[in-house]
Write a protein that binds this DNA or RNA. Structure first.
Lengths: 238, 238
DNA sequence: GCTATTTGGACTAAAAACAGTCCTTTAGAT
DNA sequence: ATCTAAAGGACTGTTTTTAGTCCAAATAGC
């Protein structure tokens, strides 16, 4: 087997279609909620727009939304100025509770350590508009103020916000994607108040470095922060 | 507009489905050929396997393959020990020849500068099996020996091989993906012999640093190499 | 030369996904 | 009070995609 591990079939483009469009759409909407991209109480884009964003027909999107509604993740109101809203009583994560494949764990942590510190460094190097600075500060304030049970989405949102400051859509996508996988892992372990506090301090450090344009400090702080989470995950899951 | 650039709708999960399964499959097969994942003269996996890898039905895969066959990208032989082979006279890149969106250009170059030097550094840090070392050396030898008209796929394959040494599937995927986008851009500009020679020297430097485990040198060499290509692309396309 | 087996080739019926159209509800504006 | 526009809700016919089955070709090994 050793000689074969670098064969083409082992690295060929991964299947782009995971299950059918319907299931994939549910999955992606759920992920967006968990990442805080759609925050609790916030309105989702209108169905017609959302369908186009996700690259599925409105019929398929509606099937997925109906499913989420049945599971109490969202609430739907008709009429002008109506829309779909993330429910405040959205069910907590109900992961399979099975320890993940160790290879998947290492892959996520490795890739995260690649993209997130780089994003922080690039954000610090960028010339930030007032709106951008405000975006980061808002995300920071929200995660700091969040009660424990709403911490994870706000935390994710903050990390993604950093990537957004870089102006690179690919980097944003990579960070969002890796953060979704991290969130799934974090759902398997307890959220301890000391860790939460520590995270908030580190978030502030990262944001400060970015806002004062200190690229190396931003990279270091982000790297350090991420290594902390990595150790936590390895400790509980390895 | 300034206040809106960080709204959820601008960062929501990108459409996963680009066009229909048929077109997407053609696209991905073509990309795999251009990336040297399926090299000229090499057999593709059997249809039944390939279909599963790509996450489409065999019927859809076959439609795509028929199209590629019509366009002379592949040759098909029936019977046991038959199969599908990348044609030696595969048409050259026939890009739209339109200058890309400058934002797309910067996005690709930024993201590449994030993932590839990191991959080189991680590869240098990894404890490499003899098979792994050999994999890198083979890729290096093939790109060095390639005539100009077959340089690009071998070049891509070398860069991807580095990522493979890290053992992180996500990093491999990210590098392969970004390299596909770079290749599309490179198709728009001339391939000059001096650049080609220079590339080969830099490839050797990177490989050497990786094989002797010098992580920082590997990162620097990769970063430098990539910056060269970036400048070339900016010069021609910006 | 047979033959077993692996491969591509072809067809069908069912399911999924789509585009398009029209309906219903609703809040703000008039 | 009425109207209007923006949102979700529902239906239809068509196209795409799939899973499954069987056929046809070809070659290494006997």
């Amino acid at each position: 087997m050793e000689q074969l591990q670098f064969e083409a079939r082992h690295l060929v483009p991964r299947a782009a279609r995971h299950g059918n469009a319907f299931e994939e759409t549910i999955e992606r909407l759920l992920t967006s909620i968990k990442l805080g991209i759609f925050a609790v109480g916030q309105k989702l884009p209108p169905e017609r727009e959302l369908a186009e964003m996700l690259g599925v027909s409105r019929a398929t999107l509606r099937d997925a939304l109906a499913e989420l509604q049945k599971a109490n993740y969202i609430e739907v109101k008709r009429g002008r100025y109506g829309g779909t809203v993330v429910a405040s009583n959205a069910p907590a994560a109900q992961g399979p509770n099975t320890k993940p494949d160790p290879a998947e764990l290492e892959d996520v942590l490795t890739f995260r350590q690649v993209v997130e510190p780089a994003a922080a460094a690039l954000a610090a190097e960028a010339s930030l508009s007032p709106a951008a600075r405000n975006h980061l500060l808002t995300a920071l304030a929200e995660v700091s103020a969040a009660p424990a049970e709403h911490f994870r989405p706000k935390d994710a949102r903050f990390h993604i916000a950093i990537a957004e400051l870089t102006g690179s859509p690919s980097l944003v996508a990579a960070v969002a994607d890796v953060r979704a996988r991290v969130s799934n892992l974090l759902d398997l372990i307890p959220l301890l108040p000391p860790n939460l506090e520590h995270s908030n301090e580190q978030h502030k450090e990262i944001a400060d470095a970015i806002l004062r344009g200190d690229s190396e400090a931003a990279r270091r702080a982000a790297s350090h922060h991420i290594e902390g989470t990595a150790n936590l995950l390895r400790g509980f899951l390895a």
